[in-house]
């Protein structure tokens, strides 16, 4: 029973859609021909079609309702014109690219800084007294006494300063190199151990590689470099280029390890510098002239 009702309802819907489409001329030629044969043979279909046609006609004849008012929008609603996207504007992919580049730079900076603090930092702290000694040595003096004559460490003077000095003062340096005893220059503490562990050939190679110079006088860690080299002897660290890399940092670390005997340098330099020379010369003078106290 229910199945028959469902089929009748489905058939009715099919008929409604056929008739509705026929009124709107939405059937193709074949469908139209079939429906017209059906309408010719079935009065019920014809009655339904006419009722549907009148309904649609009533709808089409509905009068137009006049608008009760104008629906124009107030001027206060006017939107700001959107700026036209100029050709110069950055494309969409620039922002993430710049962000990634910034992140990489920050990461690289962090790595370099970490390596610097890990390897270079302590060595720099250890060599700080030497630097202070340099700055003290470079301070202007009231008496304008030549550094060599005052017995201040000449080994930490720059080549430029050496050139500025008088010829007599410069002559002191070679004398030191000749008379300096490396074993005496090395303090008894373990600080000088790294220097002794580096063979002279390797030291020269490393210093030459990173732009520093050394003397050919064996373990001459305390010896002053030739003035024309513009170096600071063993106190000179390889100056990193503007494009400093991790390798450069490592190189400066190695050189700083060589510098580690720097703190005792002023003591040994006292012996190795003109003070020591003067004392040696004084001893020689005393030997030759005799002790005035005796």
């Amino acid at each position: 029973m229910g199945k028959r009702l469902l089929e009748r309802e489905k058939s009715r819907r099919d008929k409604d859609e056929w008739l509705s489409a026929y009124l709107d001329d939405e059937l193709n030629a074949e469908e139209r021909a079939w429906l017209e044969r059906k309408l010719a043979s079935d009065p019920a279909w014809r009655a339904d079609l006419e009722a549907l046609r009148r309904t649609v006609s009533l709808l089409n004849d509905l009068p137009q309702a006049p608008v009760p008012r104008n629906f124009i929008l107030p001027l206060s609603m006017e939107k700001r014109p959107r700026p036209a996207r100029s050709a110069r504007s950055k494309p969409a992919w620039v922002a993430p690219l710049l962000t990634a580049a910034t992140a990489l730079l920050a990461l690289a900076f962090g790595v370099v800084l970490s390596l610097d603090l890990l390897f270079v930092g302590p060595a720099q702290f250890a060599s700080a007294p030497a630097s202070e000694a340099v700055s003290v040595a470079e301070m202007p003096r009231d008496d304008q006494t030549p550094l060599a004559e005052n017995g201040v460490e000449s080994g930490v003077e720059s080549g430029v300063e050496s050139e500025k000095r008088s010829a007599g003062e410069v002559e002191v340096v070679p004398e030191v190199e000749v008379e300096f005893d490396a074993e005496a220059a090395i303090p008894p503490t373990g600080i000088a151990t790294p220097v002794t562990l580096i063979p002279p050939s390797e030291e020269a190679e490393m210093l030459t590689q990173y732009g520093a110079t050394t003397t050919p006088a064996g373990y001459g860690a305390a010896t002053a470099p030739p003035a024309e080299e513009g170096g600071r002897g063993v106190y000179i660290s390889a100056t990193p280029s503007p494009t400093s890399t991790v390798a450069a940092v490592a190189a400066s670390t190695i050189i700083t390890a060589i510098e580690e005997p720097a703190p005792p340098m002023p003591e040994s330099a006292e012996d190795a510098t003109p003070v020591m020379t003067e004392s040696v010369q004084g001893r020689e003078a005393l030997l030759s002239t005799g002790d005035p106290r005796t």
């Binding site: 819907r13 409604d16 859609e17 008739l19 509705s20 489409a21 939405e26 009722a51 549907l52 309904t55």
Partner: peptide, 12 residues
């Protein structure tokens, strides 16, 4: 099509 047909027939 189906909505229109059903609406027309219901109104009819």
């Amino acid at each position: 099509k189906s909505r229109l047909a059903r609406a027309r027939c219901k109104l009819r």
